[in-house]
């Protein structure tokens, strides 16, 4: 009989990645602060990187550099491809973060706040088309 802990333990790396991903996803959706949203995005992406990296590992595997000598045939190599993919994905994630932070700086300059609710309220008050429409109604009637 296998208990639930055995199932968790057998593939604990995937459980960690899923937990991290959900934490990141939650932060992206639920947090009101824009910087916290970006941090959430970073956690989300890091979870995916961990998934890829743990995928490539083999128990007892070594770095994929060809070993010469008498034991050469017995050496097990880990898969290098996911590492390479993730190097690219990290670059992408860093660029996304950079763009997001640049936007946040400009948003802060514009509204003086990083809180989503405050920004939303500020935008409602400044809604130009709405006030113009109301004015138009007055002119028509």
């Amino acid at each position: 009989m296998t208990g639930i802990m055995d199932i968790v333990y057998a593939e604990y790396n995937y459980w960690i990645y899923v937990a991290l991903m959900m934490i990141g996803f939650y932060a992206m959706i639920a947090k009101k602060n824009l910087v916290k949203k970006v941090i959430g995005a970073n956690i989300f992406q890091s979870a995916i990187f961990l998934f890829y990296i743990s995928l490539s590992d083999i128990t007892g595997g070594t770095a994929p550099i060809i070993v010469h000598g008498e034991h050469a045939a017995e050496v097990i190599y880990t898969n290098p491809v996911p590492h390479v993919l993730i190097l690219t994905a990290i670059v992408v994630a860093v660029s996304t973060t950079a763009v997001a932070l640049a936007l946040i700086i400009r948003i802060y300059d514009e509204y003086g706040s990083l809180d989503e609710d405050v920004i939303l309220a500020a935008r409602r008050n400044l809604q130009p088309e709405f006030s113009e429409y109301a004015r138009q109604k007055e002119v028509d009637s």
Partner: peptide
């Protein structure tokens, strides 16, 4: 102002989408 907020919202949604695709 509006353009920045629109862009930021798109960025968050777009990042979720791209991460799903990566996964």
């Amino acid at each position: 102002g509006d353009g920045l907020v629109a862009s930021f919202n798109y960025l968050i949604m777009g990042t979720v989408a791209a991460s799903f695709i990566l996964l």
